[in-house]
Design a protein around this nucleic acid. Structure first.
Lengths: 237, 237
DNA sequence: TTTACAAATGTAAAATTTACACTTATTATT
DNA sequence: AATAATAAGTGTAAATTTTACATTTGTAAA
Protein backbone atom coordinates (compact mmCIF):
# COMPACT_ATOMS: atom_id res chain seq x y z
CA UNK A 1 0.00 0.00 0.00
CA UNK A 2 1.00 3.64 -0.25
CA UNK A 3 1.56 6.12 2.48
CA UNK A 4 0.00 9.23 1.03
CA UNK A 5 2.13 12.07 2.26
CA UNK A 6 5.36 10.51 3.35
CA UNK A 7 8.86 10.46 2.02
CA UNK A 8 10.41 9.18 5.16
CA UNK A 9 13.87 7.86 4.59
CA UNK A 10 13.70 5.63 7.63
CA UNK A 11 10.90 3.75 5.87
CA UNK A 12 8.66 3.44 8.85
CA UNK A 13 5.03 4.38 9.00
CA UNK A 14 5.46 6.08 12.34
CA UNK A 15 2.66 8.59 12.14
CA UNK A 16 -0.10 6.22 11.21
CA UNK A 17 -2.76 4.95 13.56
CA UNK A 18 -2.60 1.38 14.75
CA UNK A 19 -5.66 -0.64 15.61
CA UNK A 20 -6.65 -3.85 17.29
CA UNK A 21 -7.37 -6.60 14.82
CA UNK A 22 -9.51 -9.54 15.77
CA UNK A 23 -10.65 -12.72 14.11
CA UNK A 24 -14.14 -14.12 14.59
CA UNK A 25 -15.13 -17.56 13.39
CA UNK A 26 -18.49 -18.75 12.20
CA UNK A 27 -18.20 -22.48 12.78
CA UNK A 28 -20.78 -24.40 10.80
CA UNK A 29 -21.85 -27.91 11.60
CA UNK A 30 -24.60 -30.21 10.40
CA UNK A 31 -26.58 -32.56 12.62
CA UNK A 32 -28.43 -34.42 9.89
CA UNK A 33 -31.30 -31.95 9.81
CA UNK A 34 -30.21 -28.38 10.41
CA UNK A 35 -27.25 -26.24 9.58
CA UNK A 36 -25.83 -25.19 12.91
CA UNK A 37 -23.34 -22.71 14.29
CA UNK A 38 -21.19 -23.04 17.36
CA UNK A 39 -21.61 -20.17 19.81
CA UNK A 40 -20.11 -19.49 23.19
CA UNK A 41 -21.57 -17.77 26.17
CA UNK A 42 -19.36 -14.86 27.03
CA UNK A 43 -17.74 -15.33 30.41
CA UNK A 44 -16.69 -11.72 30.87
CA UNK A 45 -17.90 -8.17 30.54
CA UNK A 46 -19.11 -6.41 28.57
CA UNK A 47 -22.04 -8.46 27.36
CA UNK A 48 -21.28 -11.23 29.87
CA UNK A 49 -23.69 -14.10 29.52
CA UNK A 50 -24.62 -13.16 25.95
CA UNK A 51 -23.94 -15.45 23.04
CA UNK A 52 -21.08 -14.74 20.73
CA UNK A 53 -18.97 -16.14 17.95
CA UNK A 54 -15.64 -17.56 18.94
CA UNK A 55 -12.79 -15.21 18.30
CA UNK A 56 -9.53 -13.78 19.42
CA UNK A 57 -7.05 -11.04 18.72
CA UNK A 58 -4.49 -11.23 16.00
CA UNK A 59 -0.99 -11.51 17.37
CA UNK A 60 1.98 -9.66 15.94
CA UNK A 61 3.59 -12.67 14.37
CA UNK A 62 0.43 -14.21 12.95
CA UNK A 63 -1.41 -14.00 9.67
CA UNK A 64 -5.19 -13.85 9.90
CA UNK A 65 -5.32 -17.43 8.65
CA UNK A 66 -2.95 -18.51 11.39
CA UNK A 67 -5.01 -16.73 13.99
CA UNK A 68 -8.23 -18.27 12.71
CA UNK A 69 -6.59 -21.70 12.80
CA UNK A 70 -5.43 -21.11 16.34
CA UNK A 71 -8.88 -20.00 17.44
CA UNK A 72 -10.54 -22.97 15.78
CA UNK A 73 -8.16 -25.36 17.48
CA UNK A 74 -8.69 -23.61 20.80
CA UNK A 75 -12.45 -24.03 20.69
CA UNK A 76 -12.85 -27.31 18.83
CA UNK A 77 -9.60 -29.16 19.31
CA UNK A 78 -9.45 -29.64 15.55
CA UNK A 79 -6.77 -28.96 12.98
CA UNK A 80 -7.00 -28.88 9.21
CA UNK A 81 -10.40 -27.31 9.15
CA UNK A 82 -11.89 -26.00 5.93
CA UNK A 83 -11.99 -22.25 6.31
CA UNK A 84 -12.72 -19.23 4.19
CA UNK A 85 -12.32 -15.56 4.89
CA UNK A 86 -15.68 -13.80 4.76
CA UNK A 87 -15.21 -10.10 5.28
CA UNK A 88 -13.56 -7.59 7.53
CA UNK A 89 -15.88 -5.58 9.74
CA UNK A 90 -14.77 -2.14 10.73
CA UNK A 91 -17.60 -0.03 12.09
CA UNK A 92 -15.95 2.35 14.51
CA UNK A 93 -18.18 1.43 17.44
CA UNK A 94 -18.71 -2.23 16.69
CA UNK A 95 -16.94 -3.19 19.90
CA UNK A 96 -17.95 -0.91 22.78
CA UNK A 97 -14.79 -1.67 24.72
CA UNK A 98 -12.32 -0.33 22.26
CA UNK A 99 -11.97 0.26 18.57
CA UNK A 100 -11.49 -3.21 17.13
CA UNK A 101 -11.62 -4.37 13.57
CA UNK A 102 -12.52 -7.94 12.99
CA UNK A 103 -12.04 -10.31 10.11
CA UNK A 104 -14.63 -13.06 9.96
CA UNK A 105 -13.86 -16.58 8.79
CA UNK A 106 -16.34 -19.30 8.36
CA UNK A 107 -15.31 -22.88 9.04
CA UNK A 108 -16.91 -26.21 8.25
CA UNK A 109 -16.54 -29.06 10.68
CA UNK A 110 -18.01 -32.44 11.30
CA UNK A 111 -20.25 -31.80 14.25
CA UNK A 112 -19.47 -35.19 15.79
CA UNK A 113 -15.74 -34.87 15.69
CA UNK A 114 -14.80 -32.04 17.94
CA UNK A 115 -13.89 -31.88 21.56
CA UNK A 116 -16.79 -32.27 24.00
CA UNK A 117 -14.49 -31.10 26.77
CA UNK A 118 -13.88 -27.80 25.12
CA UNK A 119 -17.58 -27.34 24.44
CA UNK A 120 -18.18 -27.65 28.14
CA UNK A 121 -15.22 -25.60 29.16
CA UNK A 122 -16.35 -22.63 27.06
CA UNK A 123 -20.07 -23.03 27.66
CA UNK A 124 -20.37 -23.47 23.97
CA UNK A 125 -23.49 -24.65 22.23
CA UNK A 126 -24.68 -25.55 18.78
CA UNK A 127 -27.64 -23.58 17.44
CA UNK A 128 -29.59 -24.01 14.27
CA UNK A 129 -28.77 -21.02 12.12
CA UNK A 130 -32.44 -20.16 11.91
CA UNK A 131 -32.96 -20.40 15.67
CA UNK A 132 -29.79 -18.85 16.99
CA UNK A 133 -30.09 -16.20 19.67
CA UNK A 134 -29.10 -12.63 19.01
CA UNK A 135 -25.38 -12.25 19.22
CA UNK A 136 -23.17 -9.53 20.60
CA UNK A 137 -21.71 -6.68 18.61
CA UNK A 138 -22.09 -7.19 14.86
CA UNK A 139 -21.86 -10.97 15.05
CA UNK A 140 -25.35 -11.46 13.62
CA UNK A 141 -24.24 -9.59 10.54
CA UNK A 142 -21.12 -11.73 10.34
CA UNK A 143 -23.23 -14.88 10.41
CA UNK A 144 -25.44 -13.57 7.63
CA UNK A 145 -22.42 -12.75 5.48
CA UNK A 146 -20.87 -16.13 6.21
CA UNK A 147 -24.06 -17.91 5.28
CA UNK A 148 -24.32 -16.05 2.00
CA UNK A 149 -20.71 -16.90 1.24
CA UNK A 150 -21.21 -20.55 2.15
CA UNK A 151 -24.24 -20.78 -0.11
CA UNK A 152 -22.45 -19.25 -3.03
CA UNK A 153 -19.38 -21.35 -2.51
CA UNK A 154 -21.32 -24.57 -2.15
CA UNK A 155 -23.10 -23.81 -5.42
CA UNK A 156 -19.87 -23.96 -7.39
CA UNK A 157 -17.45 -26.00 -5.36
CA UNK A 158 -17.78 -29.31 -3.59
CA UNK A 159 -17.21 -28.07 -0.07
CA UNK A 160 -20.25 -29.45 1.70
CA UNK A 161 -18.48 -32.72 2.38
CA UNK A 162 -16.49 -31.11 5.15
CA UNK A 163 -19.70 -31.00 7.16
CA UNK A 164 -20.38 -34.72 6.84
CA UNK A 165 -18.74 -37.82 8.20
CA UNK A 166 -16.27 -39.39 5.81
CA UNK A 167 -18.84 -41.94 4.71
CA UNK A 168 -22.35 -40.68 4.19
CA UNK A 169 -25.59 -41.63 2.50
CA UNK A 170 -27.27 -39.87 -0.39
CA UNK A 171 -30.03 -38.87 1.95
CA UNK A 172 -27.56 -37.23 4.32
CA UNK A 173 -25.97 -35.37 1.46
CA UNK A 174 -29.32 -34.18 0.19
CA UNK A 175 -30.41 -33.11 3.67
CA UNK A 176 -27.19 -31.16 3.99
CA UNK A 177 -27.70 -29.21 0.79
CA UNK A 178 -31.30 -28.63 1.69
CA UNK A 179 -30.14 -27.22 5.01
CA UNK A 180 -27.52 -24.99 3.42
CA UNK A 181 -30.00 -23.42 1.03
CA UNK A 182 -33.09 -23.82 3.17
CA UNK A 183 -34.92 -25.54 0.35
CA UNK A 184 -36.12 -28.96 -0.76
CA UNK A 185 -34.88 -31.04 -3.66
CA UNK A 186 -36.51 -33.87 -5.50
CA UNK A 187 -34.78 -37.09 -4.51
CA UNK A 188 -34.36 -38.46 -8.01
CA UNK A 189 -33.19 -35.19 -9.45
CA UNK A 190 -30.73 -34.78 -6.61
CA UNK A 191 -29.20 -38.20 -7.12
CA UNK A 192 -28.97 -37.70 -10.86
CA UNK A 193 -27.34 -34.33 -10.42
CA UNK A 194 -24.81 -35.54 -7.90
CA UNK A 195 -23.98 -38.59 -9.99
CA UNK A 196 -23.47 -36.46 -13.08
CA UNK A 197 -20.85 -34.47 -11.15
CA UNK A 198 -18.77 -37.58 -10.69
CA UNK A 199 -17.26 -36.44 -7.42
CA UNK A 200 -18.34 -39.13 -4.99
CA UNK A 201 -17.68 -42.85 -4.96
CA UNK A 202 -20.31 -45.40 -4.04
CA UNK A 203 -18.97 -47.86 -1.49
CA UNK A 204 -19.94 -51.49 -0.95
CA UNK A 205 -20.99 -50.74 2.60
CA UNK A 206 -24.45 -49.87 3.72
CA UNK A 207 -25.71 -47.80 6.59
CA UNK A 208 -28.30 -50.02 8.30
CA UNK A 209 -29.33 -47.54 10.98
CA UNK A 210 -32.11 -45.72 9.19
CA UNK A 211 -33.97 -48.38 7.28
CA UNK A 212 -34.48 -52.09 6.98
CA UNK A 213 -33.20 -52.07 3.46
CA UNK A 214 -30.12 -50.10 4.36
CA UNK A 215 -28.64 -47.35 2.26
CA UNK A 216 -25.39 -47.30 0.43
CA UNK A 217 -22.55 -45.20 1.77
CA UNK A 218 -20.63 -42.79 -0.41
CA UNK A 219 -17.31 -41.09 -0.07
CA UNK A 220 -16.10 -37.80 -1.46
CA UNK A 221 -13.41 -38.25 -4.09
CA UNK A 222 -11.14 -35.23 -4.06
CA UNK A 223 -9.18 -36.52 -7.05
CA UNK A 224 -12.13 -36.61 -9.39
CA UNK A 225 -13.34 -33.30 -8.18
CA UNK A 226 -11.86 -30.14 -9.52
CA UNK A 227 -13.28 -26.72 -8.90
CA UNK A 228 -14.75 -24.96 -11.85
CA UNK A 229 -15.43 -21.36 -12.69
CA UNK A 230 -18.89 -19.98 -12.60
CA UNK A 231 -20.17 -19.97 -16.14
CA UNK A 232 -20.24 -16.54 -17.68
CA UNK A 233 -23.75 -15.26 -17.46
CA UNK A 234 -26.73 -15.27 -15.35
CA UNK A 235 -27.25 -11.55 -14.80
CA UNK A 236 -30.46 -11.62 -12.80
CA UNK A 237 -32.28 -14.42 -14.52
CA UNK B 1 -14.91 -10.93 19.36
CA UNK B 2 -13.64 -12.58 22.47
CA UNK B 3 -10.55 -11.94 24.41
CA UNK B 4 -9.44 -15.39 25.36
CA UNK B 5 -8.04 -15.08 28.81
CA UNK B 6 -9.18 -11.76 30.14
CA UNK B 7 -11.60 -10.74 32.84
CA UNK B 8 -10.47 -7.17 33.02
CA UNK B 9 -13.00 -4.97 34.75
CA UNK B 10 -11.70 -1.88 33.01
CA UNK B 11 -12.89 -3.45 29.77
CA UNK B 12 -9.90 -2.50 27.70
CA UNK B 13 -7.87 -4.80 25.56
CA UNK B 14 -4.63 -3.35 26.82
CA UNK B 15 -2.38 -6.31 26.35
CA UNK B 16 -3.22 -7.04 22.77
CA UNK B 17 -1.04 -6.18 19.80
CA UNK B 18 -2.07 -3.35 17.55
CA UNK B 19 -1.23 -3.25 13.89
CA UNK B 20 -1.23 -0.90 10.95
CA UNK B 21 -4.24 -1.37 8.73
CA UNK B 22 -4.21 -0.21 5.15
CA UNK B 23 -6.66 -0.14 2.30
CA UNK B 24 -5.64 -0.83 -1.28
CA UNK B 25 -7.95 -0.24 -4.20
CA UNK B 26 -8.14 -2.08 -7.47
CA UNK B 27 -9.75 0.51 -9.70
CA UNK B 28 -11.24 -1.07 -12.80
CA UNK B 29 -12.04 0.86 -15.94
CA UNK B 30 -13.07 -0.09 -19.46
CA UNK B 31 -11.81 1.63 -22.60
CA UNK B 32 -14.13 -0.07 -25.07
CA UNK B 33 -11.77 -2.98 -25.63
CA UNK B 34 -9.89 -3.99 -22.52
CA UNK B 35 -10.59 -4.20 -18.83
CA UNK B 36 -8.06 -1.86 -17.25
CA UNK B 37 -6.71 -1.06 -13.82
CA UNK B 38 -5.41 2.24 -12.56
CA UNK B 39 -1.90 2.03 -11.15
CA UNK B 40 0.44 4.62 -9.72
CA UNK B 41 4.16 4.86 -9.87
CA UNK B 42 5.44 4.96 -6.34
CA UNK B 43 7.13 8.27 -5.57
CA UNK B 44 8.93 7.12 -2.47
CA UNK B 45 11.00 4.33 -1.07
CA UNK B 46 10.90 1.45 -0.75
CA UNK B 47 10.08 0.25 -4.23
CA UNK B 48 10.24 3.81 -5.57
CA UNK B 49 9.45 3.90 -9.27
CA UNK B 50 7.59 0.59 -9.18
CA UNK B 51 3.93 0.30 -10.00
CA UNK B 52 1.43 -0.11 -7.25
CA UNK B 53 -2.25 -0.05 -6.44
CA UNK B 54 -3.55 3.11 -4.86
CA UNK B 55 -3.91 2.87 -1.15
CA UNK B 56 -3.60 4.48 2.21
CA UNK B 57 -3.71 3.81 5.90
CA UNK B 58 -6.89 3.46 7.83
CA UNK B 59 -7.37 6.33 10.25
CA UNK B 60 -8.68 5.94 13.79
CA UNK B 61 -12.08 7.42 13.12
CA UNK B 62 -12.69 5.70 9.79
CA UNK B 63 -14.33 2.49 8.70
CA UNK B 64 -12.59 0.58 5.93
CA UNK B 65 -15.33 1.70 3.56
CA UNK B 66 -14.76 5.31 4.50
CA UNK B 67 -11.04 4.93 3.98
CA UNK B 68 -11.56 3.30 0.59
CA UNK B 69 -13.90 6.11 -0.39
CA UNK B 70 -11.38 8.69 0.70
CA UNK B 71 -8.61 7.00 -1.25
CA UNK B 72 -10.74 6.70 -4.35
CA UNK B 73 -11.65 10.36 -4.18
CA UNK B 74 -8.03 11.29 -3.62
CA UNK B 75 -6.84 9.49 -6.73
CA UNK B 76 -9.79 9.89 -9.09
CA UNK B 77 -11.67 12.93 -7.86
CA UNK B 78 -14.83 10.81 -7.85
CA UNK B 79 -17.49 10.16 -5.25
CA UNK B 80 -20.20 7.54 -5.18
CA UNK B 81 -18.08 4.87 -6.73
CA UNK B 82 -19.25 1.27 -6.85
CA UNK B 83 -16.99 -0.61 -4.51
CA UNK B 84 -16.73 -4.04 -3.00
CA UNK B 85 -14.44 -5.43 -0.35
CA UNK B 86 -12.31 -8.23 -1.73
CA UNK B 87 -10.20 -9.68 1.01
CA UNK B 88 -7.83 -8.78 3.78
CA UNK B 89 -4.20 -9.66 3.20
CA UNK B 90 -2.10 -10.33 6.22
CA UNK B 91 1.13 -12.09 5.39
CA UNK B 92 3.57 -10.98 8.05
CA UNK B 93 6.17 -9.72 5.61
CA UNK B 94 3.90 -8.46 2.89
CA UNK B 95 5.17 -4.90 3.44
CA UNK B 96 8.92 -4.83 4.00
CA UNK B 97 8.75 -1.52 5.80
CA UNK B 98 6.61 -2.57 8.69
CA UNK B 99 3.97 -5.11 9.53
CA UNK B 100 0.90 -3.87 7.72
CA UNK B 101 -2.34 -5.61 7.03
CA UNK B 102 -4.30 -4.48 4.05
CA UNK B 103 -7.89 -4.79 3.01
CA UNK B 104 -8.42 -4.71 -0.73
CA UNK B 105 -11.43 -3.13 -2.37
CA UNK B 106 -12.19 -3.18 -6.01
CA UNK B 107 -13.95 -0.22 -7.57
CA UNK B 108 -15.63 0.28 -10.91
CA UNK B 109 -15.41 3.64 -12.60
CA UNK B 110 -16.14 5.15 -15.96
CA UNK B 111 -12.68 5.55 -17.39
CA UNK B 112 -13.58 8.83 -19.08
CA UNK B 113 -14.96 10.56 -16.04
CA UNK B 114 -12.16 10.92 -13.61
CA UNK B 115 -9.69 13.68 -13.00
CA UNK B 116 -6.90 13.96 -15.55
CA UNK B 117 -5.08 16.31 -13.21
CA UNK B 118 -4.87 13.71 -10.51
CA UNK B 119 -3.70 11.10 -12.98
CA UNK B 120 -0.80 13.37 -13.84
CA UNK B 121 -0.14 14.45 -10.28
CA UNK B 122 0.26 10.86 -9.12
CA UNK B 123 1.97 9.54 -12.25
CA UNK B 124 -0.95 7.20 -12.57
CA UNK B 125 -1.64 5.10 -15.60
CA UNK B 126 -4.26 2.73 -16.90
CA UNK B 127 -3.07 -0.75 -17.82
CA UNK B 128 -4.94 -3.59 -19.41
CA UNK B 129 -5.33 -6.22 -16.74
CA UNK B 130 -3.59 -8.75 -18.97
CA UNK B 131 -0.66 -6.44 -19.71
CA UNK B 132 -0.11 -4.79 -16.37
CA UNK B 133 3.44 -4.67 -15.00
CA UNK B 134 4.37 -6.57 -11.88
CA UNK B 135 3.26 -4.69 -8.82
CA UNK B 136 4.86 -4.16 -5.45
CA UNK B 137 4.23 -6.28 -2.38
CA UNK B 138 1.29 -8.64 -2.81
CA UNK B 139 -0.61 -6.31 -5.12
CA UNK B 140 -0.58 -8.77 -8.01
CA UNK B 141 -2.38 -11.24 -5.80
CA UNK B 142 -4.87 -8.57 -4.82
CA UNK B 143 -5.62 -7.87 -8.46
CA UNK B 144 -6.18 -11.55 -9.14
CA UNK B 145 -8.57 -11.84 -6.22
CA UNK B 146 -10.39 -8.69 -7.27
CA UNK B 147 -10.75 -9.96 -10.80
CA UNK B 148 -12.17 -13.25 -9.63
CA UNK B 149 -14.61 -11.43 -7.40
CA UNK B 150 -15.63 -9.07 -10.19
CA UNK B 151 -16.25 -11.99 -12.53
CA UNK B 152 -18.39 -13.81 -10.02
CA UNK B 153 -20.30 -10.70 -9.09
CA UNK B 154 -20.93 -9.68 -12.69
CA UNK B 155 -22.32 -13.16 -13.36
CA UNK B 156 -25.15 -12.69 -10.90
CA UNK B 157 -25.66 -8.97 -10.48
CA UNK B 158 -25.88 -6.16 -12.99
CA UNK B 159 -22.80 -4.26 -11.92
CA UNK B 160 -20.96 -3.92 -15.21
CA UNK B 161 -22.83 -0.75 -16.04
CA UNK B 162 -20.69 1.23 -13.63
CA UNK B 163 -17.85 0.78 -16.08
CA UNK B 164 -19.77 2.28 -19.01
CA UNK B 165 -21.01 5.74 -19.86
CA UNK B 166 -24.62 6.34 -18.88
CA UNK B 167 -25.75 5.70 -22.43
CA UNK B 168 -24.12 2.85 -24.26
CA UNK B 169 -24.60 0.60 -27.26
CA UNK B 170 -25.20 -3.14 -27.22
CA UNK B 171 -21.82 -3.59 -28.79
CA UNK B 172 -20.15 -1.68 -25.96
CA UNK B 173 -21.97 -3.75 -23.39
CA UNK B 174 -21.00 -6.97 -25.11
CA UNK B 175 -17.37 -5.88 -25.40
CA UNK B 176 -17.40 -5.08 -21.71
CA UNK B 177 -18.60 -8.50 -20.66
CA UNK B 178 -16.20 -10.11 -23.08
CA UNK B 179 -13.42 -8.13 -21.43
CA UNK B 180 -14.49 -9.04 -17.91
CA UNK B 181 -14.52 -12.76 -18.66
CA UNK B 182 -11.87 -12.75 -21.37
CA UNK B 183 -14.17 -14.56 -23.76
CA UNK B 184 -16.32 -13.99 -26.84
CA UNK B 185 -20.08 -14.10 -27.08
CA UNK B 186 -22.30 -14.56 -30.07
CA UNK B 187 -23.90 -11.22 -30.86
CA UNK B 188 -27.45 -12.54 -31.28
CA UNK B 189 -27.30 -14.70 -28.19
CA UNK B 190 -25.90 -11.81 -26.21
CA UNK B 191 -28.67 -9.44 -27.24
CA UNK B 192 -31.32 -12.04 -26.54
CA UNK B 193 -29.88 -12.78 -23.16
CA UNK B 194 -29.61 -9.16 -22.14
CA UNK B 195 -33.10 -8.40 -23.38
CA UNK B 196 -34.52 -11.32 -21.46
CA UNK B 197 -33.10 -9.81 -18.27
CA UNK B 198 -35.17 -6.70 -18.74
CA UNK B 199 -32.68 -4.44 -17.03
CA UNK B 200 -31.81 -1.91 -19.71
CA UNK B 201 -33.99 0.52 -21.64
CA UNK B 202 -33.61 1.15 -25.35
CA UNK B 203 -33.49 4.88 -26.05
CA UNK B 204 -34.61 6.71 -29.18
CA UNK B 205 -31.13 8.08 -29.67
CA UNK B 206 -28.44 6.54 -31.78
CA UNK B 207 -24.70 6.62 -31.55
CA UNK B 208 -23.53 7.62 -35.05
CA UNK B 209 -19.81 7.46 -34.37
CA UNK B 210 -19.13 3.85 -35.20
CA UNK B 211 -21.25 3.13 -38.26
CA UNK B 212 -23.23 4.77 -41.04
CA UNK B 213 -26.37 3.11 -39.84
CA UNK B 214 -25.86 4.20 -36.27
CA UNK B 215 -26.58 2.03 -33.26
CA UNK B 216 -29.21 2.49 -30.64
CA UNK B 217 -28.22 3.68 -27.21
CA UNK B 218 -29.37 1.93 -24.08
CA UNK B 219 -29.52 2.92 -20.48
CA UNK B 220 -29.35 0.82 -17.34
CA UNK B 221 -32.63 0.75 -15.45
CA UNK B 222 -31.93 0.25 -11.78
CA UNK B 223 -35.64 0.03 -10.95
CA UNK B 224 -36.28 -2.95 -13.14
CA UNK B 225 -33.16 -4.62 -11.96
CA UNK B 226 -33.13 -6.48 -8.70
CA UNK B 227 -30.35 -8.74 -7.59
CA UNK B 228 -31.10 -12.40 -7.41
CA UNK B 229 -29.64 -15.28 -5.53
CA UNK B 230 -27.47 -17.80 -7.21
CA UNK B 231 -29.62 -20.77 -8.03
CA UNK B 232 -29.00 -23.73 -5.82
CA UNK B 233 -26.74 -26.11 -7.64
CA UNK B 234 -23.96 -26.26 -10.04
CA UNK B 235 -21.41 -28.24 -8.05
CA UNK B 236 -18.69 -28.62 -10.63
CA UNK B 237 -20.68 -29.13 -13.79
C1' DT C 1 -27.28 4.93 -57.76
C1' DT C 2 -24.08 2.14 -56.08
C1' DT C 3 -20.98 0.69 -52.58
C1' DA C 4 -19.47 -0.22 -48.07
C1' DC C 5 -20.17 -1.52 -43.44
C1' DA C 6 -21.67 -2.08 -38.91
C1' DA C 7 -26.30 -2.92 -36.81
C1' DA C 8 -30.14 -5.63 -36.30
C1' DT C 9 -32.61 -9.72 -36.21
C1' DG C 10 -34.92 -15.37 -35.60
C1' DT C 11 -34.99 -20.18 -35.46
C1' DA C 12 -33.88 -24.93 -34.97
C1' DA C 13 -31.03 -28.27 -32.38
C1' DA C 14 -28.86 -29.54 -28.18
C1' DA C 15 -28.42 -29.59 -23.42
C1' DT C 16 -30.16 -29.02 -19.03
C1' DT C 17 -33.63 -28.83 -15.65
C1' DT C 18 -37.85 -30.05 -13.85
C1' DA C 19 -41.85 -32.84 -12.60
C1' DC C 20 -43.43 -36.95 -11.34
C1' DA C 21 -44.60 -42.61 -8.93
C1' DC C 22 -43.61 -47.22 -8.59
C1' DT C 23 -40.50 -51.18 -7.29
C1' DT C 24 -37.09 -53.20 -4.16
C1' DA C 25 -34.77 -54.89 -0.15
C1' DT C 26 -34.94 -55.84 4.36
C1' DT C 27 -36.66 -56.58 9.08
C1' DA C 28 -40.35 -57.06 12.33
C1' DT C 29 -44.71 -58.93 13.11
C1' DT C 30 -48.16 -62.33 12.83
C1' DA D 1 -43.54 -69.05 6.63
C1' DA D 2 -46.21 -65.37 5.07
C1' DT D 3 -47.26 -60.62 5.53
C1' DA D 4 -46.71 -55.86 6.70
C1' DA D 5 -44.08 -51.86 7.09
C1' DT D 6 -40.71 -48.61 5.58
C1' DA D 7 -37.00 -46.13 3.62
C1' DA D 8 -33.99 -46.81 -0.53
C1' DG D 9 -33.55 -46.87 -5.19
C1' DT D 10 -34.66 -45.84 -9.84
C1' DG D 11 -36.30 -43.57 -15.35
C1' DT D 12 -38.66 -40.79 -18.53
C1' DA D 13 -41.14 -37.21 -20.75
C1' DA D 14 -41.99 -32.18 -20.87
C1' DA D 15 -40.33 -27.64 -20.26
C1' DT D 16 -36.81 -24.47 -20.26
C1' DT D 17 -32.47 -22.71 -21.37
C1' DT D 18 -28.50 -22.54 -24.10
C1' DT D 19 -26.16 -22.82 -28.21
C1' DA D 20 -25.11 -22.53 -33.13
C1' DC D 21 -25.65 -20.18 -37.06
C1' DA D 22 -26.54 -16.18 -41.85
C1' DT D 23 -29.18 -12.67 -43.92
C1' DT D 24 -31.30 -8.17 -44.19
C1' DT D 25 -31.30 -3.21 -42.97
C1' DG D 26 -30.15 1.62 -42.73
C1' DT D 27 -27.10 5.22 -43.62
C1' DA D 28 -23.29 7.95 -45.60
C1' DA D 29 -19.72 8.21 -48.79
C1' DA D 30 -18.18 7.48 -53.29
Amino acid sequence: MNSENRHDITYRYDNEDKVLLAVDCIIFGFDGEDLKILLIKRGFEPEQGKWSLVGGFLKKEETLETAATRILRLYTGLDNIYMEQVDTFSEVDRDPVERTISTAYYALININEHSKNLIQQFSANWFSVSKAPHLIFDHDKMVQHALRRLRNRAATEPIGFDLLPEKFTMRQLQKLYEAIWDTKFDKRNFVNKINSQNIIDKLDEKDMTTSRKGSYLYQFNAEKSKTQDIRPFGLKI
